[in-house]
Design a protein around this nucleic acid. Structure first.
Lengths: 144, 144
DNA sequence: GTACTATTTGACGTTAACGTCAACTAGAAC
DNA sequence: GTTCTAGTTGACGTTAACGTCAAATAGTAC
């Protein structure tokens, strides 16, 4: 039904904004579930869902400064990788429910991390604003 | 007047939460103005202002993921390093005004960077929240 | 002065995260 | 089938940001 176009590594890399080396490296490190059915030497095949997923991971890396190891840890429990391996289309209702239920706490965890960083950033911004304020006051006084 | 206690590298490192090696490395790379009056082999001497400054730099590094090179570039223009070298105490009113006026755009720049990051984080948080929402809707449907 | 600890300098070591290169091949287009 | 581009594997190279170690010395306490 859903005849999704198959992507190859080059296109994925370009769209996500990384190099092909990075994608292979991430797979090597266990971040992207590697397809066991791929025979040695055959091209890797990706879907739109992979692009979305990789984009998200890259953002977590860039915005939160997570290391690869931390990313792996974060994504590890994600049973929703089954979706990426094409299991979703053929899954039964029960299986789909389990997949969705496994994905929820993962997104929650990510959201927590982002929110925490928002907090610390807000505090830092406050400090900087205060410092700017006092500098401006000093300037005014020194000008008199 | 202001007889500030002189700190040595070990105490500074502990208070800032880095190692002494890091501090020396930062000096080596030009991030901390190195005191020309220090004779070879003599201990490095720091002030409370140095602790504050280093703390801020480390936070910019950690929260925004800035590289050392970017930090150097950011701090480079900072004429306020004069303050750290003890020039403040002996400075005339005019000099002090110039020091303060040089520090302001620097803090403004830092604040800009932090605010920008807050924006992208907010957008990301929004996306994640949306995704969480749709997952929860799916779950509800699959449960019926 | 002596003892003792923290510091200095210089040098080499380490790790994560890729970059780069070579020889070979899959797969799409014709 | 031929052609051609993009992909694959394996291996070695690179860079930033420190870690670690050794030998000598500064500075503090007594």
């Amino acid at each position: 039904m859903n005849a999704e176009r198959a992507l190859r590594i080059g296109e994925v890399a370009e769209r996500v904004g990384v190099t092909t080396r990075t994608i292979r490296y991430y797979e090597e490190r266990g971040l992207l579930g590697h397809d066991a059915s791929r025979s040695k030497g055959a091209h890797r095949v990706y879907t739109e869902a992979d692009v979305v997923r990789l984009t998200e991971l890259i953002r977590l890396r860039d915005l939160l400064g997570l290391s690869l190891e931390e990313l792996v840890e974060l994504a590890e429990a994600e049973e929703s990788r089954a979706v990426l391996r094409g299991r979703w289309e053929t899954a039964s209702g029960d299986e789909r429910l389990r997949i969705v239920e496994a994905a929820i706490p993962l997104v929650e965890r990510q959201l927590e991390l982002v929110r925490a960083r928002q907090q610390t950033l807000a505090a830092f911004a406050g400090e900087l604003a205060g410092k700017l304020d006092s500098l401006e006051n000093r300037r005014a006084e020194l000008r008199r």
